[in-house]
Each structure stands twice: as C-alpha cells, then as structure tokens.
Design a protein around this nucleic acid. Structure first.
Lengths: 206, 206
DNA sequence: GTAAATTTTTACCATTTGGTAAAGCCACGA
DNA sequence: TCGTGGCTTTACCAAATGGTAAAAATTTAC
C-alpha cells in the first residue's frame, strides 16, 4: 500500500532538487545529454556528485525529469489558443506568447532543441503522446477557420512550424543573433514587430 | 623550406580523409562536439581510432575542419542574392535555395545548429569574420530596396533571421516534423508552398 | 537531550575516452 | 628482390566519467 513517492519532500529535499535541476538545465542546454557531466552539474549546483546521486538515480533521471517538467510549460501557449476568439488575433497572440517564452526561458528552449537535434532519444514518447494530439487539435481548429473563410487559404501544419521556428530561433541561435545585431538592447521589441508584421501579412491578406 | 601541407595528398589520403569527415559529420551532428567520441567516428568510418589520428591531429581538428568547409557552402545561397534582380523575386529565390539546402544537407545544418546552441565555442571567429560582413551587406541591400519603395517597409535583419529559422527548421527539427506529419512523402513541396506564400505575402503587400 | 532518520562527505571503482608509441604491413621503384 | 616510405594495427596509458559503499555529520521527532 505504501508508495515511494507518497512521502512529502522535506524543505531540504525541495531546495536541493531545485538547485540540481536548475544547474542541470544550464549544463544540459549547452552541452546536450552526452556532453554534460555530473561533475559539471554538481559544481554548478554547489553540491557534491554523490550528493546529487542521493536525490536522483542517475544522469538520465535528471534529464528526463527536466524534459517532463518542461513539456507542460512548453505546450501551454498553444493550449491557450482559443476557438472562440478572432482567428488572426488568436494566432498573433500565440506568436507573441511564444516569442516571450523564448526570451524568458532560453535554456528550456535550448534543452528542447538539443533533444530534438539528437533525434529525441529520451523524449520521443512525449512527442507522440502529448505534442501530437495537441498539434492535431490546433491544426484542425485552424483548418476550420480557413473553411469558414475567416482566414485565407494556408497550411496549418507548416504555419505552426514557422511560428515555432521563428520564435525559438531567438533563444536557440542567441549566440548568432548577438554577433549579427551587435549589442542592440531592443532585439525583443524588433523581433516582435517583425513577426507580428510577417504573420499579420499572411493571415490578413484578402 | 618544406611545408607540411605542400605535398599533394595521395589517393588513399583523399579517400580516408573523406571517409573520416563524412563519419564525423554524422556523429558530431547528432551528438555535438563533447557528446561525440572518436571510437564512434572510427566505427562509422570503418577505420581504427589510431588510424584516424594519423589523418587528423585530434578530435577538435576534425570538428574545426568540418565547420570551416561547411561555412562556404552555408553562405553560398545568400551570396547569390543579387542586387540586379527584382527584390521580391530575389528574396523568394533565396528562401527556396535555403529550403533545398536544408533538404539536401540536413547533417550540415544540424552540425551548425549544434555549434551555435553550444555558444559557438569553436566557430565564433568565423561568425564575425565571414558571416557578419555578408549579413551586413545583404541587409544594406534590402534596406536600399525598401528605400527605393521596391519593397514594403520591413526589418531586413529579422527578415533574414526568419528565413534561416523557417528553412533550417526542417533539417534541425526533422525528428519532430516527422512525428507530427506522419509519413507524408511531400513534406518538402508543402513546406516550399507555405514559405513562398508566407514570405510572398510579406514582400508583396502594398 | 537523545535516538532515529535524513543528509553529506570521503574514499573508492570499473569503464570510457582522447591520445601515443612502436611494431608490422604493403605498394612500388630500382 | 630488396629497401623505402607511406599506411595500419596492436598494445598501451593517464585522465575523466558515471556510479557505489559506508562512514560521518546533521536534522528531526519525541
């Protein structure tokens, strides 16, 4: 009847697990799974390596935990896209939420990008299990909007790909963006203006 | 007086260096620099590890060689964007070349993406030395087109980012695209249609 | 305050990894 | 046929890496 996960975590457990996950996010997002080392994560977290293995059963456990927690956050902006609103407004608001998220959670974006780049060896099931149903649902919604002539003819699937690609680009390719733009302080605002204009032009053409 | 690189490479040297670089491209593009191992590259190339180190001075040498060779190919489509052509036509043709390249050279795209994701520790100088001047030049060209009213008001820098992001997405996030589209045979054609429509709408609005 | 439970450290270990030394192999010209 | 130079293999090595055992320290419950 007893369950290992039934006990409520102590204050120390909560603090240290958070320290570890935060450190691991930093390291995994830059080095990928195989490139990251427990020593590096330990150093970043300010804990000893065996201490880390007291809280997680291994390197993979940490990585999987990170990816699982991330998935919910990641899908949230898309979930919020509502069938009741104005089509173009809803989609442009989604673009904005996605762009804001790339600014606020760049490490999460890179973690996800790295995992997909490597062929999604550890997150594959989540993709088919969680992402795909939501993706299909929202594609169907956009298709409906098109059928109702509330949007011009367009390809819902590739529209969503374009939104993901353009927004996440600012997190995943941040290094390149920084090199090419110099030290502009207003990158986010410019990106927002551009993306709103671009997707606006696509969605509002008659 | 003698130079190590002066001797012309033998047939065997050319073949084996190509084998190694091809294998390394496969491994580095999936695992990143630190995640890749010489053993894996050796196995993929069908050579022994010491034999690989006979042709390259180390792991980093292979990686840098790959990235250097890649850079030229990578910038080519942008170089071809011509000041003499019709603005919208030139830009849309660039989008198409970039998309074709993502289809034809997905490993190269992922290699580059991985390097940028990791903060460009080994390609940084190439970015400022080669990419940035070209980027600036083409941004200036697009700016001119806008100033001449041959294009609507738009942000050249972020336009180019959007082109890179949307086209390379099909290579870098191939795993995710495959999961979400099922086994469609016509992904490339659909992507092409969508991107031409999207960037067309932006460039041709009055 | 003290015993029990939890957390942290110390001291390891087996495997993997990038890299080296040197012997062996092999093609080819004299 | 012999030697020479380029290529390949065998046998290593030191450092790094993921992980473990168990003692030591600390917190918590009573």
């Amino acid at each position: 009847m007893s369950d290992a996960s039934a006990k409520k975590p102590s204050r120390i457990q909560k603090r240290n697990r958070r320290l570890i996950l935060d450190a691991a996010l930093e390291v995994f997002s830059r080095q990928g799974f195989r490139g990251a080392t427990l020593d590096e994560i330990a150093a970043e977290a300010g804990l000893s390596k065996p201490n880390i293995l007291y809280y997680f059963s291994g390197k993979e456990d940490i990585h999987v935990t990170l990816l699982s927690k991330l998935m919910e956050t990641w899908l949230d902006p898309l979930v919020e896209m509502n069938a009741d609103g104005d089509p173009a407004t809803e989609i442009l608001a989604y673009v904005q939420r996605k762009l804001d998220m790339a600014r606020d959670l760049p490490r999460e974006s890179r973690l996800f990008a790295g995992e997909i780049l490597q062929g999604a060896p550890r997150i594959g099931p989540e993709l088919t299990g969680h992402l795909k149903p939501l993706f299909d649902e929202k594609c169907a919604l956009i298709s409906d909007w098109v059928a109702q002539k509330r949007l011009p003819q367009l390809d819902p699937q590739h529209l969503i790909f374009s939104i993901w690609a353009t927004t996440q680009h600012y997190a995943d390719f941040e290094t390149q963006v920084d090199v090419l733009l110099g030290d502009t302080q207003s990158t986010h605002a410019q990106a927002s203006d551009h993306l709103q204009a671009m997707f606006g032009a696509l969605l509002k053409q008659k």
